[in-house]
Each structure stands twice: as structure tokens, then as C-alpha cells.
Design a protein around this nucleic acid. Sequence first.
DNA 1: CAGGTCCCCTGCTGGC
DNA 2: TGCCAGCAGGGGACCT
Length: 290
Amino acid sequence: MPELPEVEVVRRGLASHLPGRRVDEAAVLHPRTARRQPGGAQQFADLLRGRTLTSTGRRGKFLWVATDDPEVVLLAHLGMSGQFRVDDPAAELQVPHRHARALLRVDGRPVWFLDQRTFGWLAAVPMASDPRGIAVPRLVEAIAPDPTEAGFDARAVARALRSHRVEVKRLLLDQSKVSGIGNIYADEALWRAGVHPGRRADRLDVATLVRVLDAAAAVMAAALAEGGTSFDSLYVNVNGESGYFSRGLAVYGRAGQPCPRCAAPIVRQSFMNRSSHLCPRCQRPPRAPH
DNA sequence: CAGGTCCCCTGCTGGC
DNA sequence: TGCCAGCAGGGGACCT
């Protein structure tokens, strides 16, 4: 998916179109899209119909739109390919996009949820709170704070990461430890901090882990300022426009190209059924791999 | 419990 | 031109 910056771009788009408006209708068009709704697609539609949308929120890669009923929050995860499109009120409802998975009508405006790969989902859930007492929707309770949240404590997170005998990149991708970071920004953060993704977290010191977390926050902030990262039409804002941060990436997708810092060729390695991109000179591997 | 693997989907690309 | 393997920014289920 879209990682934190791309999700934040979408949240801002929804925030500019939806609050104060009423849900006339909500319909799920693909069964997988409602798979996390306890009562299924019909319950999703029933709960949202007639609700007035209020404020938007986000934690990590989860975003939501609250309503006038605290028991009903529209929660969304974009998965790998989810998008929202807010159309003009006059737009044609009868010709759905090929990947249309849900449709809301909000004060006459069609709001589409498009999702080619159907890893994304929508749910109407009650507001709840996380272990710290911060208000988040149900299904987000176990998601850790993300680096952009007020009160995010990099040192505390770093200390927590150190208790795991696992490669540091695996932890960066674990949304219950720190949220919002995906494969792109994990690689970028590790490169900025000069840490090899295969280094075990319990063998890094707190200061190093803080550097990694700070780098993640910085690279995601830079990406957000450019409207997010996109390589193709899958990653767009609610108006269908793409961001430009792909040109700001130092290692991701740049295998064989020179490291911006030392000019050594970037390498791509397989990791966790995904790929890791790194500079073999700036990011030294652990002495005893594993 | 913690760590690690597999799998869910669609579509595109590159090699044969 | 066709076919197939591999790959893609997600995470949840299930195994040991």
C-alpha cells in the first residue's frame, strides 16, 4: 500500500470533502471489501446510512471518518491498491470503475472505493481506545502510534524494539510496534540511518534505533510534502492525482544505481518474501548473519 | 508468547 | 503472438 504519507494524502482529501455531509447511501460492491465487518456488507450499509460525517483521523496506514454516532466510524485500510475518489454531484453513478469495491453517496456526491487487488477493506465500527487511552476505532486498538503522532516517543519505542531478537526491518514493518512504515520507507529509513536491514534489533543500541525511527519520520514527512510516493496510477489522492516523491527515494527501486551518499551500486535482496534495497557500503551487514 | 511462513488478489513485465 | 514465472508499496491466519 500506500504507506503513511500516501494514506495521509488520502485522509486530507477526504477531510476537505466529507465533514458536515450526510451519507445518503452506502453499498459494498465486492464481498472481500467488507470482510472485516462483523455483520457483513449489509451491516456496513445499514450503519452508515443517514449518518452525518464529522472529522477524519488516521493512525499509521489506517484512516477513518467519524460520524455523529460514536458507535459508527467509517474505517478504511487501503491494502496494496485501495483508492478513494470523490466525484462531482453530477457524476454518473451508473458506470462504475472496473475496480469499484464500494460506493457511498454523500450529499449527492459519489464517493468510490476502488481497489484492484482487494487487499483493502472498509468497516463501520465503534470508536474505542488503545492501551494508552487514546481514542481510535475498533480494529485499530492494537496498532501502535505512528511517528507523526503527537507524543510519539522514539526512545521508548527504540527500547521496546531492542527486546526482540529479530531483524530490525521486520520490526519496522510490524504495525504493532510502530505503525505507518512499509517496505519503501523502511528501506529508506535504514539507508538514511546507515543500518543494514538484517541487523538484529537486540544487537543495536538505543541511539541507533532512535536514529532509524527519526529517519523514518523524516523521510515520511518529506514524502508527504511532495504529495506522497507513486510509481503508477495505483497511488493517487481522492482527485486521482499522483505524488512525486519517487524521485526523492535513495534506494527503493534503485538496484544497480549509485548510492547518493557513496556511489556504491545499490543492491536488492530478497527478504520476508519481499525485497530490500540497500547500499552495501553504507549499511554493513551483521557479522554473523542471524 | 515470539518468531517465521504462507496465503489472500489482480495485473503487469520480461524471458523464452 | 502466447505463456508463464516473478513481482508489486498490504497484513491476517496459522504453524512451530
